[in-house]
Design a protein around this nucleic acid. Sequence first.
RNA 1: GGAGAAGUGGCCGAGUGGUCGAAGGCACUCCCCUGCUAAGGGAGCAUGCGGGCAUAAACCUGCAUCGAGGGUUCGAAUCCCUCCUUCUCCGCCA
Length: 431
Amino acid sequence: MLDIQTLRNDLAGVAARLATRGFVLDTARFEQLEGERKLVQTRTQELQARRNAASKQIGFAKSKGEDVTAIMAEVANLGDELKQAEAQLAVVLAELQALLEGLPNTPHESVPVGKSEADNEEVRKVGSKPSFDFAVQDHVSLGEGLGGLDFETAAKISGARFSLLKGGLARLHRALAQFMLDTHTDQHGYTEVYVPYLVNAASMRGTGQLPKFEEDLFKVPRQMGEGIENFYLIPTAEVPVTNMVRDEIVPLESLPMKFVAHTPCFRSEAGSAGRDTRGMIRQHQFDKVELVQMVHPDDSSAALEQLLGHAETILQQLGLHYRVVKLCSGDIGFSAAMTYDIEVWLPAQDTYREISSCSSFGAFQARRMQARFRNAQGKPELLHTLNGSGLAVGRTLVAVLENFQQADGSVVIPEVLRPYMGGLESLRGLK
RNA sequence: GGAGAAGUGGCCGAGUGGUCGAAGGCACUCCCCUGCUAAGGGAGCAUGCGGGCAUAAACCUGCAUCGAGGGUUCGAAUCCCUCCUUCUCCGCCA
């Protein structure tokens, strides 16, 4: 959520910055709502003040045994007017809030201006493309050849966009997650957390998935008293982990907070019918190791570079070729102020595919969540949040399969994973 | 699932219709005293949103907030209803 003060003080400026990401801010509507709010709020508070003063008088007079009928009569007339004003105020505030919650974050000043993916900036390439003297297979035929990847059974059990891993492949998948977790906890100073996979609407609102992107989420209705309230399956660990600090005021000394979590992620992929239908690239369920940081506002830029480096370490240690892309203003996500994508080389597709997305959100999420720290002056101040995949486990598995495949259809296991694989050096025809 | 108890500021904890946004304590900040450690005295110290303000801080002021949402009342932390959460006991269970 953007700071309403900023909107009041520099509406045109905010509109211009939002325009760089292709968002049109209805400034006239904001001004109209804001004007109405000011009017109604002032009037409501005036009425409340009068009522409070009169009530106080009544109490005071009664305690002295005086007659209060005169004041009572005066206050009685206030009632209806006040109720009406309060109701009107509630409506205006709700509209204003809805408008505010629908506004995306303003891009950081360093973000390149652009319309789409095509305008993203390549920051660097690391490593080099592997060369093959045979016709490469994609991960689907490799996995099926190894007997460890079974989409048909997954489809029978659940439907399209699910996968089933077996034997060595299932273990490799687990090994990847373990390796990532161990690296981030042992070498990068993150605290591992295990978190709920079903969260409430307030949490989704806090990180910005709600109210705008409900169609991307899996909803689980449940009976709550007389009504229905929804749980939501997390689309990323960012949601539960970041919401750990919702409605909290943490001490200055606790910053930066760095958490890592391995969770499944669930996405309805509502808008992507027909895209990436083959293989494990785009699934309703996939595992991800997620890095989350809560930092002092002064440190968030440096923290993003650091977090990006942590994610890159995984690819480097696995020996995978990748590039880092800085997303342009038109391509960054709703809540993000700045985003780097890490794209891994996939030889069978002859292209780079996103395997991690590292973003800084400034105070955008913190403001929605009222997540604060006590600053040096002792005053509560919004903290800054960041997160990034480190990495998407399913896509990493795809990358390992495709990049380390051999002519005979076997796959060499990267050395750093072998301790997690019982010393196994390659996957071949496992049952 | 059944029975009971409880949810108050950073923390502990008083408060059952009226100068209560809230006693007292701890923690914290400032000052005084004290030649270490410790102790003593005084003051300050919730959050959000408005207005003063055309701008940052400070300050003054109004409103709201005592788990959440409704209700009763001139007035609710306090009474009523619904819900949520936590704790204890019983049952069930990975």
